[in-house]
Amino acid sequence: MDTSSSVRDGSPLVTTAIAVGLAVFGIAATQLTTIPAFLMDPALLTSPADASIAARTALMVLNFLGFALAGGIYLAATDRGWAYVDWRTPTKRGWLYVLAGIVGSIAFYVVVSLLIQTLSLPTTENQVMEYIAGDQTMILVMILIVFFFNAPAEEFLFRNVIQKRLYAAFSRYQAVVVASLIFALVHVPAYLAATGDLLSIGPEALLASAVSLAVVFGGSLIFGYLYAETDNLVVPTAAHAAFNAFQFGLLYLALEFDLEVADPAQSVVVDLVFVLS
């Protein structure tokens, strides 16, 4: 399964630069694809919580379509075409990997949540929370979005395009690590912006960003491994979607039980254990 060095035909530096460029291109594409949502409801710019559910939904959907668009443009520009996309019904072995990915990602989530609670580590609030704003209806909408737009688009760009492109210069598992690092790093601006004034970021804010990025990196390693093992985009996509749905499900329960939670990756697991036991 591993790509041997004898068939690698790319420079690690150049290949990594291309991969980073693809990630940046994906982020840039989302800035264009989301414009209609902001035109639909300008409140998204200043007060996302006050925007209509329709506008918030459109923003999320168009954001993830930006990733898909970027990946599609790359495949067209390089003459790879849609035959390059590893989208097919999983075999029995593939579905076992999906199950393992779901269990593994949830276990990772629980362990990380417990560590964050035990060590009292700070984390940065996910920007998605600004658009949910404690609205349980929006949470249910987000569960649909992660299945039909979020997981498919992110896995397509970061696994089937970026990680697969890295195979030209790295072994499969090295490519998983590099792609996951890129996936985490593209979150840096958002996490730093969420800490407040970028010119006066303190040690605690930097630690919070680092903890959140480590969580993103760890989750990406799991989904990247699933793709490396199966060469089937459906496998990491299904596991990713189920994992994100699990997170939003916990958040829904947290609001239902009126738990005080700042971010679904912080203390929801611990609090719900006590509430539901």
Rank of each mutant, 00 (worst) to 15 (best):
T3S: 14
T3Y: 15
S6P: 03
V7W: 13
R8L: 10
S11V: 09
L13P: 00
V14L: 15
T16V: 10
I18F: 08
A19I: 00
V20R: 01
L22E: 00
F25R: 02
A28M: 13
L32C: 11
T33L: 10
T34Y: 03
F38V: 09
F38L: 12
L39W: 13
L39P: 04
L45F: 10
A51L: 05
A51F: 00
S52D: 05
I53V: 14
I53E: 10
A54V: 05
A58F: 07
L59D: 10
L62S: 09
F64E: 04
F67W: 10
A70E: 06
I73M: 04
T78L: 09
D79H: 14
G81H: 12
G81N: 13
W87H: 05
P90A: 07
T91D: 12
T91P: 03
L96P: 04
Y97A: 10
Y97K: 12
V98M: 01
I102C: 11
G104N: 04
S105D: 01
I106L: 13
F108M: 15
F108L: 15
Y109L: 13
V110R: 12
V112K: 00
L115Q: 11
T118V: 10
T124A: 08
V128A: 15
A133R: 08
G134H: 06
T137N: 15
M138K: 08
M138P: 00
I139L: 09
V146D: 03
F148R: 08
A151Y: 00
P152G: 08
F158P: 00
F158Y: 14
R159A: 03
V161R: 04
K164S: 13
A168T: 14
A169R: 06
F170W: 07
Q174I: 04
V176P: 01
L181K: 06
L185Q: 09
V188R: 06
P189K: 02
P189V: 02
A194H: 09
G196K: 08
L198N: 08
S200N: 15
S200Q: 08
E204Q: 11
L207S: 10
L207P: 02
A208Q: 02
A208S: 12
A210L: 12
L213R: 00
L221Y: 03
G224L: 04
A228S: 12
A228H: 01
V234C: 08
V235N: 01
A242N: 07
Q247C: 07
Q247A: 07
F248H: 01
L250D: 00
L253M: 12
E256W: 09
F257M: 03
D258W: 03
D258G: 08
L259Q: 14
E260F: 07
S267N: 15
V268Y: 00
V268G: 06
D271V: 02
V273T: 13
V273G: 12
